[in-house]
Write a protein that binds this DNA or RNA. Structure first.
Length: 475
RNA sequence: CGGGGUGUAGCGCAGUUGGCUAGCGCGCAGCGUUUGGGACGCUGAAGUCGGAGGUUCAAGUCCUCUCACCCCGACCA
């Protein structure tokens, strides 16, 4: 813990893995591509879960749990789905010492098994809409992995819903993307760009995919959440049908949507600096850390008493406080330690503070240090945390905007995606998209909902183009 | 799968033309002194040198094979 991270300017990806490990968010597991989420990282994930789960409940969803194992044949039922996932499946062939009659897939996502159950549960239009979510792990055998951003096994939530009409399902897919956008902005302080995925970037089995795209500290894009309108693709493959008001058999219309532990990677890369993590107060496991400073035993006693009082008052004010009472490390060590862990606000109390009936505060986001009367602390900390939350979002938004360029020529596009996001008119053809990817390594991140309107020319082929898309190099 | 790199104490590393009890820093344990930006002293514990085979009087060091992991690309939440 007593080391420094690689500076971002020197090697961004090394900085990232340094921070994740030194802040004790995660560690490499003995199995290739897998990670151990450590208590501090898991506490952060729990706060992400809480923020999302509350929103899911508010929008009428219920949690359930479906099995880890999926019969191999289920995956084959939806043509595009199997094609998309086959290369990255983990397959169980033996159980209890015997070869299995049918191999089991370790779920890469649960559309197939959930549809199997929905087909059983849904009989009537009165059973709709069915709004389910599950928190679970999934496995995708990726070639190259990175802590949180892409691991063989990862944690996520996957929402799965069934509706009577296409319009309703479409609205649900959009609504859940709005939920993700709201979470990203207000909880994670990440200014995401919500939009539609291009056809080539669409989820395997979906009619339309929506995404929130975020800009990381190295100006690359990270897909941070997706929501899919599945149409009737899975319903037809699995026979998920209901009787409508006219006693006619209909296939349901469906959605699925997910956010994963990748969100933690986004938080690290959007806010962190060369000192380590900077956590948005809403999600920070510890919002305020109190560091006592003393020389003599008499001072220690008085300071300990003052801290007990402050801790109680801050806790009552709804603040997540932690007192660092370790006596085997110096205050300076603790300052660096908690900065590495991204705690938004530090409270120092030493003999000088005590004499002046004040504490010394240090903001993690700005590095600013200032005194505050002890009596005011509990009343003012919640406001300070709000301010830090807002300033993180503002800073990230300014960074994103400063590195996003609206371009209209090929030359401008190439230049823009080399070091940021490009916003350009695109005719919608896969050929133009492929050309951009081949020649610049940038991919179509999304077609933002927010559009300038009117018509323009495709940045690649010059054909009439109604919409703009975001192009960028992505994780 | 292609390219690059690394395997020696928990972590980071050194180890000469092969040479006898394999070192250093950090961390860890004990004791003492310390504490306002990563404290210090003393003492101590900790290693089948990734694995297998070979060459040799002698292998961490040379040879062959092998395994694992990390980083960079193509694929992906």
């Amino acid at each position: 813990m007593a080391e420094k991270v690689t500076p971002r300017s020197e090697d961004y990806s090394r900085w990232y893995t340094d921070v994740v490990q030194m802040a004790e968010l995660a560690d490499y597991a003995p199995v290739k591509g897998c990670m151990v989420i450590r208590p501090y990282g898991y506490a952060l994930w729990e706060n992400v879960q809480a923020g999302l789960d509350r929103r899911f409940k508010e929008t009428g969803h219920q949690n359930a749990y479906f099995p880890l194992f999926i019969p191999e044949s289920f995956i084959r039922k939806e043509a595009e789905h199997v094609e998309g996932f086959a290369p990255e499946l983990a397959v169980v062939t033996h159980g209890g010492g015997e070869k299995l009659e049918e191999p089991l897939i370790v779920r890469p996502t649960s559309e197939t098994i959930i549809n199997t159950m929905m087909a059983k549960w849904i009989r009537s239009y009165r059973d709709l809409p069915l709004l389910l979510n599950q928190w679970c792990n999934v496995v995708r055998w990726e070639m190259r992995t990175r802590l949180f951003l892409r691991t063989t096994e990862f944690l996520w939530q996957e929402g799965h819903t069934a509706h009577a009409t296409a319009e309703e399902a479409e609205a649900e897919a959009r609504r859940m993307l709005d939920v993700y956008t709201d979470f990203a902005l207000n909880d994670a302080a990440i200014p995401v760009i919500p939009g539609r995925k291009s056809d080539t970037e669409r989820f395997a089995g979906a009619v339309r995919s929506y995404t929130i795209e975020a800009m990381m500290g190295d100006k690359r894009a990270l897909q941070s959440g997706t929501s899919h309108f599945l149409g009737q693709n899975f319903a037809r493959a699995f026979g998920t049908q209901y009787l409508d008001r006219n006693n006619e058999l209909q296939y349901v219309w469906q959605t699925s949507w997910g956010v994963s532990t990748r969100m933690i990677g986004a938080i690290v890369m959007v806010h962190g600096d060369d000192q380590g993590l900077i956590l948005p107060p809403v999600l920070a496991p510890t919002q305020v850390v109190i560091v006592p400073i003393w020389r003599k035993d008499a001072e220690k006693e008085a300071i300990t008493a003052a801290i007990a009082d402050l801790r109680g008052r801050l806790t009552s004010a709804g603040v997540r406080v932690r007192v660092d009472d370790r006596d085997d490390v110096s205050p300076g060590f603790k300052f660096n330690d908690w900065e590495m862990r991204g705690v938004p606000l530090r409270v120092e109390i030493g003999p000088r503070d005590l004499a002046a009936a004040q504490v010394t505060l240090a903001r993690r986001d700005t590095g600013e240090k200032f005194p505050m009367p002890m009596a005011d602390l509990a009343a003012r900390v919640p406001g300070l945390l709000k301010d830090i939350q807002a300033s993180l979002l503002r800073r990230a938004t300014e960074f994103r905007d400063a590195n996003t360029h609206e371009v209209s020529t090929w030359g401008e596009l190439v230049e823009a995606v080399a070091d940021g996001f490009a916003r350009a008119r695109w005719c919608g053809s896969a050929e133009c998209e492929a050309k951009i990817k081949e020649e610049t390594k940038a991919t179509t991140r999304c077609i933002p909902f927010e559009q300038p309107g009117g018509m323009g020319k495709c940045v690649v082929c010059g054909a009439e183009a109604r919409e703009q898309a975001i192009f960028a190099r992505a994780y």
